[in-house]
Amino acid sequence: MRSDAPRAPWGLKLAAGAGLVFMIAPLLLIFVYAFTTEERTYQWPPPGFTLQWFGVTWGRTDVWQALTLSVQVATISTAIALVLGTLCAAAVSGSKFFGREVISLLVILPIALPGIITGIALRSAFGMTDIPFSFWTIVVGHATFCVVTVYNNAVARFRRTSGSLIEASMDLGADQFQTFRYVILPNIGTALLAGGMLAFALSFDEVIVTTFTAGQQQTLPLWMLEELVRPRQRPVTNVVAVVVVLVTTIPILLAFYLTRDGDQIAGSGK
């Protein structure tokens, strides 16, 4: 099969390679600086390598607080998104009603709009209604765009799931709850997992909406932003960045593989 494919000219290969290097090299720099012995400036080449920053980072309570807050926010917004996104997808794909396309568009809007618009809009709405900025305002802000990823994944799967499956289940003696548990959930499960993981990753590194909806709280990305302007123990930021890269990449890769398998199962059923 490989021999059938036309060979790319070496110029194209070089250009593609250069493009990849351009994208990946800065990421590698972050990894390198996590081990540098110089703590005030980003000096190249690093004067020496050390593992001490991992220990220092471990001992810093502000890192732990920011990390805990980010995980909490991401978990709760993802949970909200899973419930709302699934219900919305079920409604849009399961029935025809006036304004269905409009609702579909409105649900997707928060991710299409620049984050800064969502941020300002939420901030002025919270301000107008005298809602104090808190953990929950961040969660609500994140949920607006987390719903989208869950909705998009779920709606695609619902469209492929034939409506007669639900009727077949009820015909065979399952009530609504049993039908949801034994037929609907297994059929949309991987889509929800994938959507949920994407939602989690999005929420975890969100900066703009968070800036507008947070009070005194600092999520991990906000903490990093502030750390960059303060020239003290700089490599700590890099250590945290390495952790964030790992924490966000793994679920995205998992989501990618899960939906890929899901497509194969759904496709072979037709």
Binding site: S162, S164, L165, E167, A168, S169
Partner: peptide, 16 residues
């Protein structure tokens, strides 16, 4: 689900 009647669907509706 409370009727002693079962259906063979046109598209079979087998659980994939």
């Amino acid at each position: 689900y409370k009727r002693n009647v079962n259906t063979v669907f046109q598209d079979y509706a087998l659980f994939p």
